[in-house]
Structures are given as structure tokens and as C-alpha cells.
């Protein structure tokens, strides 16, 4: 059970540093926070022509929240905003246990490794923080 959560892949993503930075040309900046536990991230994105050109984050939190954020950024970078929104909804549905079929989850790529969080109600909000933060971000459609 525990080994299904704290996999080497997730440990690596939780400590990865290349996406932890501020973007000089960010067009979107959104903070996400789990007040009860202190996970706190600020997501930055550079969006132009409806495409996420670059994304990065700063913040702190548990391994699950940090790995999930890192994986999300890698997945969404280069995607059209509309497609990215669909992926975020797919991820949240996976964590909620609504979608379990591995083929259906394939578009999530490495982020599908967090599927087992669906069995850990206490950690669901850690896994979904970044994805909710992305969906909550204002001005996603704003043209620079």
C-alpha cells in the first residue's frame, strides 16, 4: 500500500528542482493553499495564443503535493489551455476514484502514478492541490 504511494518516481518528482522557479514572463500567477495542513504553492504560467508556453512553481508541502505539482507542470507545458483543462479534470476524477480504467488515464502520462491516492482520503487534497490551482487560475484565456 505505502509502496504504491511513495514510489521512487514520486520521490524523485517531489524533490525535482527544475520546475521550481519563477517565470520572468508569467501571464498567469495563482496561489493554492491547503490551510489545514500548510501545503502552499504558487503556480506561474506563460500563456500565449491559448498555449501554455511554460509553467513553473514555488512553494512547499508534502511529497505528494510537490510531486503532483511537478508532474502537472511537465504534463501541461506546451499544451493548449483547453486540453490542459481536460487533463486536470481527468486527473481530479482519477483521484476521486471516478475514473479507474488505465487506458482512460493514459493521457495523464506519469501523473497517473498517483492513482492510488484515491484509496487514501486523508491525502486527496494534497494530490489535487496543483490541479485545482490551475483550474482556479484567473485569466487563463487572457491574451498578453
Amino acid at each position: 500500500m505505502l509502496e504504491d504511494i511513495y514510489t521512487e518516481l514520486i520521490a524523485e518528482h517531489s524533490r525535482a528542482t527544475e520546475n521550481r522557479r519563477q517565470l520572468p514572463n508569467a501571464t498567469v500567477k495563482e496561489r493554492g493553499h491547503n490551510p489545514s495542513c500548510g501545503d502552499d504553492i504558487t503556480l506561474e504560467m506563460e500563456i500565449s495564443d491559448g498555449v501554455i508556453k511554460d509553467a513553473a512553481f514555488i512553494g512547499q508541502g508534502c511529497a505528494i503535493s510537490q510531486a503532483s505539482t511537478d508532474m502537472m507542470i511537465e504534463l501541461l507545458r506546451g499544451k493548449k489551455v483547453d486540453d490542459a483543462k481536460k487533463l486536470a479534470e481527468l486527473f481530479i476524477n482519477m483521484i476521486k476514484g471516478n475514473i479507474t480504467d488505465d487506458d482512460a488515464l493514459e493521457p495523464l502520462d506519469e501523473a497517473a502514478a498517483l492513482k492510488n491516492i484515491a484509496n487514501m482520503p486523508a491525502r486527496v487534497k494534497c494530490a489535487t492541490l496543483a490541479w485545482h490551482t490551475f483550474l482556479n487560475a484567473k485569466d487563463l484565456e487572457l491574451k498578453p
Partner: peptide, 10 residues
């Protein structure tokens, strides 16, 4: 190097 929530889960 380990976040308290991960400690608590383990």
C-alpha cells in the same frame, strides 16, 4: 527532509 504529512502517513 520529509514533510510532516508524509511522516504521519507512514
Amino acid at each position: 527532509e520529509v514533510h510532516p504529512h508524509d511522516v504521519a502517513t507512514i
